[in-house]
């Protein structure tokens, strides 16, 4: 038996927008003031190959 909530387009925009905003706030909260900390793992070097 279905028990799904009806999700309107406006609500879709709302949840997506809220996730983007919260992730941005999370980055500020958890990373912006601590960028001078050492990284536990150094970011891998990602080499992109291509031709001009």
């Amino acid at each position: 038996q279905s028990m799904s909530l009806f999700v309107s387009p406006a609500q879709t925009a709302a949840w997506r927008k809220q996730i983007f905003e919260q992730l941005s706030e999370r980055s500020k909260r958890e990373m912006d003031n601590f960028r001078h900390y050492e990284q536990a793992i150094e970011q891998s070097v990602w080499v992109k190959k291509g031709s001009m």
Partner: peptide
Amino acid sequence: IHGIEPMLETP
């Protein structure tokens, strides 16, 4: 989830 609180309407 991952430090955020998604809305209950999130699929």
